[in-house]
């Protein structure tokens, strides 16, 4: 490193910057052109403090937490929902209607992926598998995501309609899961609920704007809702697993979330002067591994590289 130090020493002194190691830059800005002093800076950055998938992996490793088979199966469902949605939303980055929206959708995708990683990491502990084992080496019928999350992005209106349903559903779910008797599920949900709350706001803002914007945008959001609404019912279906877990206080029956979902989405829809589409509800089946045609393509793309190099570390 000596030669490099010689070559950058002068710069460091001249610029109040030090280039160190591989690109780590300590930015001590003192000269003119700086935006205020350090403590008042609008660019002061911190990593923050929140539950991360890595923390859960660590707890698993130490043997501090291990989900029951049922809890793992349940975590797989919500984890897969987030994963597939993040995969869909990630496609928007560099393609959004405006650069600001690239960032907004990117944030939402990152939130969803974060939740997915936490839930999948936790689920995997039941079977000695990592988040990546579960994401990259399961086959289509082993995924537990609901059909709504697999629906194509379509135009921006379809994506917003999907986001609207997803975020209001997830908000109700995570709110209840914060009181789960399973401490890990409760902790992940407590982090997720705040993020999903913002997703609600984001989608509601856009539903109002698209519905109340131009004739074209209104026609498109109506069409968008028509395309995704058939997949609402599946989200609120109870089955044997949820019945057992509800009895144990791990989760609530999905059907119990419906009334509040209807009320809150109904408020926004009414304000936007949109009607709930009268479309037949799809039979679903995602929770049992029965998926739409779309999932196969999503997985083919997502898994291709990891499967080319089984056992590799990245």
């Amino acid at each position: 490193m000596t030669t490099k130090d010689v070559s950058t020493q002068e710069t460091a002194k001249d610029t109040d910057f030090a280039i160190d190691g591989h690109g780590d830059i300590s930015v001590g800005v003192h000269g003119a052109g700086a935006s205020g002093d350090g403590s008042a800076s609008a660019t002061r950055i911190t990593p923050g403090n929140a539950l991360r998938p890595e923390d859960i992996a660590l707890e698993i490793q130490r043997g501090q937490v291990k989900p029951t088979e049922d809890v793992a199966e349940f975590a797989l469902r919500i984890g897969d929902d987030g994963l597939i949605l993040a995969q869909r939303l990630g496609h928007w980055i560099s393609r959004s209607p405006e650069l600001e929206e690239d960032i907004a959708l990117g944030n939402i995708a990152l939130d969803q992926l974060g939740h997915a990683r936490s839930f999948l990491t936790y689920a995997g502990a039941a079977w000695g598998k990592s988040e990546d084992d579960l994401a990259y080496f399961r086959r289509e019928h082993e995924f537990r995501s609901a059909h709504l999350f697999e629906q194509p992005n379509g135009d921006f209106a379809v994506t917003i309609a999907r986001q609207f349903i997803v975020s209001f559903y997830q908000f109700e779910l995570y709110t209840k899961l914060m009181e789960s008797t399973d401490a890990t599920i409760a902790a992940i949900s407590a982090k997720a609920v705040k993020e999903v709350d913002y997703h609600r706001d984001h989608s509601a803002q856009w539903v109002l704007r698209l519905a109340g914007g131009t004739d074209e945008s209104r026609a498109r959001i109506i069409q968008g809702f028509k395309l995704v609404w058939p997949y609402v019912e599946e989200l609120f279906e109870d089955d044997e697993l949820t019945t057992r877990l509800a009895a144990a206080g791990v989760t609530v029956q999905p059907s119990s979330l419906r009334a509040e979902f209807d009320r809150l989405t109904g408020d926004i829809m009414a304000e936007a002067e949109l009607e709930i589409p009268g479309v037949p509800q799809s039979l679903g089946g995602g929770r049992r591994g029965k998926h739409s045609e779309f999932l196969g393509y999503i997985l083919a793309e997502m898994q291709v590289l990891a499967r080319e190099h089984p056992g590799a570390s990245w």
């Binding site: 609008a42 911190t46 990593p47 923050g48 600001e100 960032i103 704007r209």
Partner: peptide, 22 residues
């Protein structure tokens, strides 16, 4: 930044200028 109205401007600002807890 650019935004169609104040409400969206706030949200865009949140996404653009506070991604790292600023």
């Amino acid at each position: 930044l650019h935004a169609p109205d104040a409400a969206m401007a706030l949200r865009n600002a949140r996404d653009l200028y506070t991604r790292r807890n600023e």
